[in-house]
Amino acid sequence: MYEFVTGPLLWISFLIFFSGTLYRIRRLYSLTEKREVTVTPPGAAAPPAAAVSAEERKLNLVVSFQNSLLGKHPVMAIVSTIFHICLFAAPLLSQAHNLLIYESWGISFISIPDKLCDVLTIIFLACAVFFLVRRLTVPKVIAVSSPYDFLVLFITAAPFLSGFCAYHQWLDYKTVLTAHVITGEIMLVAIPFTKLGHMVFFFFVRILIGGEYSFGSGRRAWKT
C-alpha cells in the first residue's frame, strides 16, 4: 500500500496537478482577449499629473490604507495571509519532504528545522479552525456557505492534520503516514478542479485583467 501511494499514485497526482493547472491557465487565456480600450487615446499624451501637496499625499495614503483589505478586515487579512504562507512553507520547506526529494532526484530546496515546521503546521491548523468557526457562526458567511466549502477546507487541512499526527507518532505510524500521503495527493488533484483553483484565478485575473483593483498591467479583458 505505502509503496503504491508513494510510487505510481504520487506520479499520477503530480501529473494531474500540473496538467490541470496548465489547462486552467489556458482556459482563462481563451476566455479573455487583449484589451483594446485604453484610458489615454492612442497618440495622445497622458494628462499631466496634478500637483499634490505633502498633506494630500499623506491623506491619500491614510485613506487607501483604510480602504484596503488590511484596513477593512484586519483579522481576516492577517489570518488569511498566515494561513496561505504556512500552506506553502510547511510542505515545501519541511526537512522530511526535502530528504525524500533529495533521495529521488539528488536535489533539495532550503529546509527548515522540524521543530519550526511543526510550529508552522500548528499555526496553519489554528487558522483553519478559525475559518471553520467563522463559517459556522458568522451570519453573512453562513449565508454563502455550502457543504462544498467545508469539504474544500477539509481537503486543505487534512494533509496537515495527518502530517502533524505522523510527526508526533500518534496512532499507528504506518497507517497515519499512508493517510498523510493520500490526503496530500487528494489536495494536489483537487487544486485545479475545485474552488481551490482560486490560486490560478487570483494571479491571472488580478495581474492580467484590467480593472480598478488589478496589480499588474491589466492588458486583458473578459471576452463578451
Binding site: 482563462l28 481576516m76 488569511s80 453573512k140 449565508a143 454563502v144 466549502d149 474552488k195 483553483g197 484565478f201
Partner: peptide
C-alpha cells in the same frame, strides 16, 4: 470559472453600501 473561484469568504460584504445600510442583511 467565476462561481468556482469564489471562496465564499464574504470579504466582499462590507464593500457594498447596500449591505452596510441594510443591517448587514446577507441578502
Amino acid at each position: 470559472l467565476c462561481l468556482e473561484a469564489c471562496a465564499s469568504c464574504s470579504i466582499c460584504a462590507e464593500s457594498c453600501f447596500l449591505f452596510n445600510n441594510n443591517n448587514h442583511d446577507p441578502r
